[in-house]
Every structure is written in structure tokens, then in C-alpha cells.
Amino acid sequence: MSLKITELSLSIGDRRLFQPLSLIVARGEVATIMGPSGIGKSTLLTAIAGHLDPSVTATGHMTLEGQDLAPLAPETRGVGMIFQDPCLFPHLSLGNNLAFGLRPSADRAARRAGIEAALETAGLAGLYEADPDTLSGGQKSRASLMRSLLAEPRALLMDEPFSALDMELREEMRRFVFAHIRARNIPAVMVTHDPADAEAANGPCCQLQRD
């Protein structure tokens, strides 16, 4: 039992966005959150990550590995995020985008080797100095995932991670992402509209209900 959400509800003013949500995501498992547009699926993810907009109030409990998330600043929660848009930083080379994610270490050569290995895993070998803007959509998505994983997150949140990809690529990316989550043995939460995503995730599935 790793990521535990208990009776979580979000409201803007007096309006509650969805019925209170309880969810337990074990290590290596991918939970899927579905529901109609505008019900607050993305907002739910920002609440877990700690970026909740001040206009939204949250009640309920969230713990990660038994630790209460509420008092932690976003950058100390150890919660990685993946969006539909890969959001590679345009001013850094591809390798340095990954280096930004990698935890610091005194040994420069080891850092470089770690990044090269991550690039290779993502099918981007030899592209350390590449301009991220010149990559294909699939390459960008894989790089974005590697950047998140190099930061050694304790949990991963994904906001419609595959919806910008075409059908073929989507299938391939799902396998790639889910395999890495299993290998890292961390809990993950995915927001999606696509039932095929939920099926592939093969984890607990939550349908958010209007209040």
C-alpha cells in the first residue's frame, strides 16, 4: 500500500467538484481516473502534486508511503508529473533536459553515463546535444518520461499522457511507460478519456461522479 487517498473532495466556493474519492494505489500499479470533461480530473492531479489553485479548497487525506502529503511543498513531495504536452525545456539540449531531472552527484562522468543510458533506454542514443524541438512527438514523450523518472519520484501522475499521439504510437508508448512504472515499482495515477488506456493500465479504475 503506497499512495492512499481518503475521502478527498475539491470545491470551488460552495460547489463541490465530484463526490468524495477514496483510492489506494499499490507500488507498480497504475490507477485510472475517468469522468466527464470539467469534473476536475486534472485539478485532482494538481491537488496530489501540491499545485492546487488557491481558489480551490481540498478536504480529505492523502498519504504517500504512510507520509501525509498535505504539509509538504510541491518540490518535496517526490511526485512526478507527465502531461499530454511533453514540455521539454526549449533552451536546454535534450541531454541537459534529462540532466535537469537527474539527482545531483559529485561524479560528472557517472552523471553523463546515467543520462546516456537513459537516452538509450528511450531510443534516443547519441542525441545528447540535440535541440528538443527537432524531435518527433514520440521521441519527445519518451524523453519527458525519462526526465521525470531520473528525478526518482515516489509516485507518478499522468494527465492524458497519450492523447496527443496517433494510434500506433499510443500503443507503443503505453507499453513503454507502464513497463517503466512497474520496473521502478512506484504507484501511478493516470487521467484519461480513452477506455483503451484504462484497459492497458490494468489497475484500479475510478469514475468521478458529479456531486
Partner: peptide
């Protein structure tokens, strides 16, 4: 988005501004 990703990678506000937003 940049702030969210920066924080999810473990960076504080000041570093996100100096290393990610200002250079862009």
C-alpha cells in the same frame, strides 16, 4: 506548466525561475 514540472522534479520556486523561466 513549467512551474509544475520544475516542482515535480524537486526544484523550488527560485530555481525554477532562474533556471527555467528567465532563460526563456
Amino acid at each position: 506548466r513549467t512551474r509544475q514540472i520544475g516542482a515535480s522534479l524537486g526544484y523550488g520556486t527560485l530555481r525554477i525561475w532562474a533556471l527555467l523561466i528567465l532563460p526563456q
